[in-house]
């Protein structure tokens, strides 16, 4: 009874980084509280992943069943409800991924467990759980507490903790066979991958990336010219795609592409969590009129100013350096 339950997430036979990140954090909390860490792995043909998880948890509970081959809320709810009622953990951790967002709120309500979502950290001190969560486009953080309960649930943003660890616990693997009922209301049909576009922004050394601040499709010309001048590629954040100003293939972020250019020039991009998830390495330069835009918290260099004033002058300066 008790302990910390980490719900492992995987796609195409690989565990997601967020699972390793959460296990790292769980290990730290385990050390200070004495709570044991159990990873739950639900899926089909997942033995190899279970063995990997065993190095990072005291115990791995595996449910291997064809009905679990693809995520389906109905099936996962029933399976996890059974496991949670059986193990009675004090804390359940899930990634704040699209799966975590779909699963955690309804599951927590189903089991009447207090839940905080979109958290970037949590701690247990003197038996009291507090979590830090993001609000208002990531411009404000909230420290939240929970009313007294036997069990709590927290979803954690990907990238909140390190993936790397030196732990090698060699936990026990416990396979449980459960009657898994066929879902009656939700039917998985298939997964579709994003169509290959004309432009592959993941291969670009220089990305000139534009966000909502550009205001209108007709203003794109300004940044297109800058990209051309730099021999770079034009990319963008989600709002620009939502408004159909640029095609999806140009989108940097968790629902778009993950990029690793040498230079990333973020113009009029506020830097939502989802956008920053797609940005791995390189020199990040931000131009934004809001000094508190989250993009400045990750940028190496920044200009606080109106892009419509800054970019035209910048273009002239670049021409003169060529």
């Amino acid at each position: 009874m008790g302990g910390i339950l980490v719900i492992a997430e995987h796609r195409k036979g690989d565990l997601l980084d967020v699972t390793w990140e959460i296990l790292n954090k769980a290990a730290v909390v385990s050390e200070s509280t004495g709570q044991r860490v159990t990873a739950v792995l639900a899926g089909f043909n997942v033995r190899a992943m279970a063995e990997k998880l065993a190095g990072r948890a005291h115990k791995v509970v595996v449910v291997d069943n064809p009905e679990l081959a693809n995520y389906n809320y109905e099936v996962y709810r029933d399976v996890l409800t059974g496991i949670i009622k059986n193990l009675r953990p004090v804390l359940i951790l899930i990634g704040h991924t699209t799966t975590g967002m779909d699963l955690a709120p309804a599951l927590a309500a189903h089991l009447n467990i207090p839940l905080a979502t979109a958290c970037i950290d949590f701690s247990i001190e003197d038996g009291k759980l507090t979590a830090i969560r993001q609000m208002y486009n990531g411009k404000v953080n909230a420290r939240v507490c929970f009313s007294s309960s036997d069990c709590y649930m927290v979803t954690l943003r990907p990238g909140s903790f390190s993936v790397e660890t030196e732990n090698a616990w060699g936990g026990e693997i416990q396979s449980i066979s459960l009657e898994v009922e066929k879902p009656s209301g939700i039917k998985f049909i298939r997964s579709v991958e994003a169509a290959l576009g004309e432009v592959d922004i993941t291969q670009a050394d220089i990305l000139v990336s534009v966000g909502q601040g550009i205001g209108d499709k007709k203003n794109l010309q300004l940044v297109e010219e800058l990209a051309a001048l730099l021999g770079g590629t034009l990319s963008c954040s989600r709002p620009v795609v939502d408004k159909k100003w640029l095609p999806k293939e140009r989108q940097v972020g968790s629902s778009g592409k993950t990029v690793k250019p040498k230079v990333y020039l973020a113009i009029g991009i506020s830097g939502s969590f989802q956008h920053l998830m797609g940005l791995k390495g390189g020199t990040i330069i931000a131009i934004n009129k809001d000094p508190r835009a989250p993009i400045f918290r990750v940028a190496d260099y920044g200009i606080v100013g109106d892009l419509f004033q800054v970019v035209p002058v910048l273009k002239e300066k670049i021409k003169s350096l060529k």
Binding site: P114, L115, A116, T130, M135, G138, K139, V140, N141, A142, R143, V144, C145, F146, S147, P291, R292, F296, R297, V298, A299, D300, Y301, G302, I303, V304, G305, Q309, V310, V313, L314, E316, K317
Partner: peptide, 26 residues
Amino acid sequence: VKIEKLFIPVSNKATEILTGSLDEMT
């Protein structure tokens, strides 16, 4: 789940914000 306190997150990265006139910054 109750909010105990809101706060503005601080950056732990040393971002160099360029200063000066528009001409100097660019």
